[in-house]
């Protein structure tokens, strides 16, 4: 090594010292800050994982409810169609239904009133007699 380093850089130990002050307690607070930051960094992924699992559970629940609702709707729809089909294609049932409902509808109404109504709506007397039999 040359003379200057021997004379200056090596012979003046204070040159090796850092000529700067620091805010009071800086290193202690920095260490705490770093350790806290990392703890949060460590916890955050755990929280994210938990949140993701809760969200996937919620999504699964929603899917199950939606699928259940869809199938329920389908089966209800099918039931209604079956009844309609039954009503449309079974004349006997319709006939029976007609009479049943007619009997129910005409409950408490006098026969004379019905005949008057039928004459009023243009039904012939022969037809009335025929249905009466």
């Amino acid at each position: 090594m040359n003379r200057f380093e021997d004379d200056i850089l090596q012979s003046m130990p204070q040159l090796k010292e850092m000529p700067y002050d620091l805010p009071e307690g800086y290193f202690d607070s920095l260490k705490k800050e770093l350790q806290t930051e990392v703890r949060q960094n460590t916890l955050q992924p755990q929280f994210r994982q938990k949140l993701a699992s809760y969200l996937s559970l919620a999504a699964m629940f929603v899917m199950i409810v939606a699928a259940g609702g869809f199938f329920l709707e389908k089966s209800t729809e099918k039931q209604e169609l079956t009844q309609e089909d039954f009503l449309i294609f079974s004349d006997d049932f319709l006939y029976l239904t007609y009479y049943e409902s007619d009997a129910e509808a005409s409950a408490g109404i006098e026969e004379e009133d019905i005949i008057e109504y039928l004459i009023y709506t243009g039904v012939s007397a022969d037809s009335i007699e025929h249905y009466k039999q």
């Binding site: 204070q14 040159l15 010292e17 000529p19 700067y20 002050d21 620091l22």
Partner: peptide, 15 residues
Amino acid sequence: DDPYFNGNEMQRELH
């Protein structure tokens, strides 16, 4: 301009 500098001129010039 460093407000934290507390050294002598030789240290300043070294840095």
